[in-house]
């Protein structure tokens, strides 16, 4: 188990804004990657099932 070091948590408003912008950017990229993987795994499954039938 871990906890956030209180010495590192104090941020100025500008730092907090930058931090949240980074978080938002990472979340958006992660969502895009997850969507890509959903499509990829759908296609892989489709190909695998097709090849096992034929």
């Amino acid at each position: 188990m871990s906890e956030i070091d209180p010495k590192n948590t104090a941020m100025s408003p500008a730092e907090q804004k930058a931090y949240q912008a980074k978080q938002k950017q990472r979340a958006a990229i992660m969502a895009g990657l997850l969507f890509f993987l959903v499509v990829l795994f759908y296609l892989i499954t489709f190909v695998k099932i097709n090849s096992s039938i034929s």
Partner: peptide, 15 residues
């Protein structure tokens, strides 16, 4: 228990 060493200032960007 461990103290997380990740500083908020060092949150890695996607780049």
């Amino acid at each position: 228990m461990t103290i997380a060493s990740t500083s908020p200032h060092k949150l890695a960007s996607a780049r």
